[in-house]
Design a protein around this nucleic acid. Sequence first.
DNA 1: GAGTGGTCTAGACCACAGA
DNA 2: CTGTGGTCTAGACCACTCG
Lengths: 251, 251
Amino acid sequence: MPRLSYLDIAAILRDEIERGVYRHGDTLPPEPVLAERFETTRATINNALRVLRGEGCIATHRGRGTTVTALTRRIRRSAMTRYRPEALQTSTGPFDYEVRQLGMSPRSEVTVSRVVPPAEIAEILKLDEGEQAVQRARRMFADDTPVMIASSYIPLSIAADTVLEQEQQGPGGMIRRLAELGHAQVHMDESVTVRPPNDDEADFLRMSSDQRVYVILHIGRTAEGTAVEAAQQIMPTHYWQLDYSWDVEPA
Amino acid sequence: MPRLSYLDIAAILRDEIERGVYRHGDTLPPEPVLAERFETTRATINNALRVLRGEGCIATHRGRGTTVTALTRRIRRSAMTRYRPEALQTSTGPFDYEVRQLGMSPRSEVTVSRVVPPAEIAEILKLDEGEQAVQRARRMFADDTPVMIASSYIPLSIAADTVLEQEQQGPGGMIRRLAELGHAQVHMDESVTVRPPNDDEADFLRMSSDQRVYVILHIGRTAEGTAVEAAQQIMPTHYWQLDYSWDVEPA
DNA sequence: GAGTGGTCTAGACCACAGA
DNA sequence: CTGTGGTCTAGACCACTCG
């Protein structure tokens, strides 16, 4: 019998996970045991697990073991509905809706502070070098699995000493508050890129460097085209699907 | 002096690439040479190169060596403009525009055939089990670097024996032709996910399994909501940025 | 302290590209 | 043929988690 390659082993384990031999949340056998089962060494098993980790099937933790990832389906982030007035009416907000769609429980933690934003954000908000902005940082969970980091920045000239510097926003969230302050947003820009997580992101999102995050840069603009809010959202690619839909004029 | 970890080595090499010690297109020293330089073994070098490969910095080819990736900036795919009538007026089409924006030369190859589409596509187009559709497969290049695989599917009931089964489409492309055939599209849906490339994709796009592709499912609908075109686009994440922009009603 | 996965060493064989 | 990167073996040390 020919030896199995790490890809073969990954395929076998993937199949067993899909067939339910290992359930979501289960712990896989330790690497030495798998090595024995497949008549190979730990290095090869480690390689196979890296493949599955990259796909988001499993998560490995030193000292704790290898567990099958909890999320069955991906959370669907519907860009066009999540910023619509109707979506904002609900006190819970679009993230809560998106997570509940999967039958999971949403939770989030907010931190508000004044910071000098990253250069990319400062440029969008047309801030001077070293100028501060209000940062609203949110860490979001689905059933206690961390699934998103979002940082919104609003120029101090708009947000200083307003409700935007308080943690609780009330129904309609930031968009509604900004509108009430005379900065109604009528246009959104988003760009999507993908990269490995940095150390902080990997730590909070419990990711390995074999996995990837979406980086979504979201910009809200007023009728004059001024950017009044710039937000960066970091999400593991294996947890999310991004949905967009729009109307076009017929050709 | 402490030994360097593969992450340290990756960081050093990344820095050297960014500083221009190795230029885009250059070949890096072979792994045994790097192993000697960093006083370690090939396995550790291999590990370091895997990190850079995952970021899209380099590409490794057995027998040929390791080269620095050609693309400096990412191609920007602007979803909302690429399907607008104005964008379609130009005979060249949106992909050509997007690539030229980077100062590169676009090229694409089209293959038209009748196939039974993947289940996901068949469901969208409401095809019966085993029913065929017209597939227009495009492989796209920027300066001879393969950057995208796109497969559009149109139901046979619409496309059979029409200009849609010919390779050349003329100005306005498929959207215009569909409109002329009485299937004007007024609504677009797109979903974005990310995964490792499959073997075919990795082969054509010259990717390794450490890298990732966007999978964009694009659906064009008529005023009645009928899907008349479903397309799947596969693009290496390290080559592309996805842009979306839209208007919202004020809160 | 025992068990986990992360990383490394030293060496080997292989598939593949190119002269 | 030589040199490349891909993969594997056998063994080791380490950091981390948990009882």
